[in-house]
Design a protein around this nucleic acid. Structure first.
Length: 456
RNA sequence: ACUGCCUUAGUCAAGAGGUUAAGACGAUAGAUUUUCAAUCUAUAAGUACGGGUUCGAGUCCCGUAGGCAGUACCA
């Protein structure tokens, strides 16, 4: 059975790049009827927080990336790590190292000065027994000849010489195990068949494979996904970009749209741009992922989002708008009417916030700003509006079509062009000139509300 | 500095040695319109650079440049 895992470290929110990794792990497991496992890599106790765990889970929940097992926490598996640590020590696959940080720093500086790559020089390699007084770290005896080769599902064959690798620390001086070691034990114990992760881990892979070998274990299949970069080709940063998944929720992006957009980065299915998650799962193949990094294009995300909004049932959109209004203490009593409004205006929007904004004209009176008022509400247009108010108050047939005809005739009878009436009318009714079709606004507002707003 | 990965229009991308290098987003122009939007039509824009192999290279090989990552008692 196929088993994949998503293994974030809880040192912040769910990053947009991690979300894509999670999506691919999840989709691959789904497609193959395997299991998708969530594992929290919290061995760095200093930086890990419960809030981060919660926010990551919350974001995955919003995206709909459900996991079959977990969350497992590395901090709860310490005894198992210690056990394997002992085993490696016993089998002469690891050794104690008494070097201090200062010593190591000095060693690296000397190496750099000589133009060499910094690498542990194995000065403690033969220290078999414990020395008293100093708490040693445990280092893994990495092979020093030959090379590590694996066939990455995304990158193809990768061959890294063991001479590039040094004896990595697998346990700190306080006895706690380190990342590269825990990952291997976890992937082994959790019987992970496919390790799908960001390609910033490519350099860790040969070390981890050597650990698998030392434990006599089968090495999983690897797939390293290219990074998602900022539009200028740099790494996405917290300060300047929206890197948290939940920020996209706040921006009015639909989860299915974000997933769709993310899926199209480094992966594609012919000319298909807009598709459902179900469809994606059916099409998805790990080995069809391209190996070059992609830049994040917010404009295309909005376009994909717009397409998904158009596809989403009006009832569902209405529920979302309802919730948003509810937060602002605007209560909607007639859901059917809201659904009709949404149906008439949704083509205008590419995000949920705009949808709420466009709906709000019908539920909340907003006065126009002074600049626009002075521009559009002249004594001439005000007298037109007054006349319009009087005339429409006697309109009997209240339908969009009838209102449309009424407006047309009003303009003809008074010898004015449509914008002369439309612009000030929009401003009075919606507080903005960038409003939907005027006949529709009037229809949904209702006669009394139209007259009320015209009088203000 | 070393090692690994990457490089097709502004962006995402198709391309399996063989027409004139798809498609999408965006941009620009025009049409339409009741403002904004939407819609329709059209246009511009690309194989990083230099060699080689070949009858033929975006595709294979070598080199160069640029980008990214790692070289932690972080993950």
């Amino acid at each position: 059975m196929i088993r994949t895992r998503f293994a974030p470290s809880p040192t912040g929110f769910l990053h947009i790049g991690s979300a894509r990794t999670a999506l691919f792990c999840w989709a691959f497991a789904q497609k193959n009827k395997g299991a998708f496992i969530l594992r929290i890599e919290d061995t760095d106790i200093e930086r890990s927080t419960q809030e981060s765990v919660d926010s990551i889970i919350n974001a995955m929940d919003w995206l709909g990336l459900t996991y079959d097992e977990g969350p497992y926490y590395q901090t709860k598996r310490m005894s198992r790590y210690k056990e394997v640590l002992e085993q490696l020590l016993m089998n002469d696959k690891a050794y104690y190292c008494y070097c201090t940080k200062e010593e190591l720093d000095l060693m690296r500086e000397e190496q750099k000065a000589k133009g060499l790559k910094p690498k542990y020089d194995r000065r403690c390699f033969n220290s078999k027994t414990l020395k008293s007084g100093i708490n040693p770290v445990i280092r893994f005896k990495n092979p020093d000849t030959g090379s590590v080769i694996w066939h990455d599902l995304v990158k193809g064959k990768i061959d890294i010489s063991n001479s590039e690798l040094d004896d990595l620390i697998i346990a700190r001086s306080d006895g706690t195990p380190t990342y590269n070691f825990c990952v291997v034990i976890d992937d082994l114990d959790m019987q992970i068949t496919h390790v799908v992760r960001g390609d910033d881990h490519v350099n860790n892979t040969p070390r981890q494979i050597n650990l698998f070998y030392a434990l006599g274990a089968e090495v999983p299949i690897y797939a390293h996904l290219p990074m998602i970069l900022r539009e200028d080709g740099k790494k996405m940063s917290k300060r300047t970009d929206s890197v948290s998944v939940m920020q996209y929720k706040d921006m009015g992006i639909l989860p299915e749209a974000l997933l769709n957009y993310l899926a199209r980065l480094c992966w594609g299915h012919g000319n298909d741009e807009v598709f459902s998650i179900e469809q994606f799962v059916k099409w998805f193949e790990l080995d069809k992922i391209s190996s070059s990094p992609a830049k994040f294009d917010i404009k295309k995300l909005y376009w994909v989002n717009k397409e998904h909004i158009q596809k989403k049932p009006n009832q569902k959109l209405a529920d979302l708008v309802f919730k948003s209004f509810h937060k602002k203490n605007i209560i909607i009593d007639d859901m059917q009417k809201l659904i009709e409004i949404i149906n008439s205006i949704k083509l205008r929007v590419d995000n949920l916030n705009s949808l709420v904004q466009e709906c709000s004209y019908f539920y909340q009176y907003v006065e126009a700003n002074e600049l626009e008022k002075s521009q559009y509400l002249t004594s001439e247009t005000i007298s037109i509006l007054n006349k319009f108010a009087i005339n429409i108050s006697s309109l009997e047939n209240w339908s969009i079509e009838a209102i449309k005809v009424f407006i047309k005739e009003f303009c003809e009878n008074n010898n004015i062009k449509m914008p002369q009436l439309g612009m000030p009318l929009r401003l009075k009714l919606c507080g903005t000139i960038k409003a939907p079709a005027i006949d529709m606004i009037i229809y949904f507002l209702g006669k009394s509300e139209v007259l009320r707003r015209l009088k203000v």
